[in-house]
């Protein structure tokens, strides 16, 4: 009951932090997608670079978020900037790999058909490769979005704002209501976004490729 009371009493704050959290995630996911998809396309053209590029993204992905923040702060300070950089770095593995796999796994017969129609490399990318790979790329964006919501929670500790603020404050002051007021919305946000992307993936799969 007291948890519900806390929610009602602090609804304005919780709403503000939720919006902050969404804002950080949306900015990070947008920039990450732009960078990750471009790199992903590039390594389909320069196949030799694929393994090292994906390997580096994999190593970055392995670094615990708190440690990555710890290594960024001495050079770029605290706040939104190191947060966005960390979120973007983490997202690269999912985005680069999915873009690369999505494009390289296109059925050879579809490739042949495009070439046979005399498409230029650019037309081929825009009209064949990207649309066919889109569901796989979307799955990468989905992974990145869910992960960023989680990492953004931790970024509250370095002044990025968002729902993590309530959790950290609640832990420090042993205030259960405050912890739950941060943890519950952020959990719902992550699950909700994940589900939203499931629907989006289904919607974006070209009808010819739908099972």
């Amino acid at each position: 009951m007291s948890i519900l009371a806390y929610f009602v009493k602090n609804q304005a704050l919780i709403l503000k932090l939720t919006l902050e959290h969404i804002e950080i995630t949306v900015i990070a996911v947008s920039i990450s997608t732009l960078i990750g998809v471009i790199i992903g396309i590039l390594i389909t053209r320069y196949k030799r670079a694929a393994t090292p590029v994906i390997g580096i993204a994999g190593i970055l992905y392995t670094i615990p978020s708190l440690a990555l923040f710890g290594m960024l702060i001495p050079f770029i300070g605290i706040g939104l900037k190191p947060t966005l950089i960390a979120l973007i770095l983490y997202s690269q593995l999912a985005l680069i790999r999915n873009t690369f796999v999505g494009i390289t796994h296109i059925d050879p017969s579809i490739r042949e058909a495009g070439r046979g129609m005399g498409m230029s490399s650019w037309q081929f990318l825009r009209m064949v490769e990207l649309p066919v790979a889109l569901p796989v790329i979307m799955a990468g964006i989905r992974t990145a979005a869910v992960m960023n919501i989680g990492t953004a929670t931790i970024a509250a500790y370095i002044g990025a704002g968002g729902l993590g603020w309530l959790i950290f404050r609640g832990i420090a002051s042993v205030n259960t209501e405050q912890i739950v007021a941060g943890a519950l919305p952020v959990t719902l946000l992550a699950i909700g976004v994940d589900y939203l992307f499931v629907l989006l993936e289904r919607y974006l799969t070209p009808s010819g490729l739908r099972h």
């Binding site: 440690a67 710890g70 702060i73 001495p74 605290i78």
Partner: peptide, 29 residues
């Protein structure tokens, strides 16, 4: 060490905590 480093805004402490953490995770992987 990392949390302390953030609170105290101590770059040496931050790196002292973060670098071994990163190495530990990468090595395990």
């Amino acid at each position: 060490l990392i949390f302390q480093g953030i609170v105290m805004a101590d770059r040496n402490l931050l790196l002292t905590g973060s670098i071994p953490t990163a190495i530990l995770a990468i090595a395990a992987d």
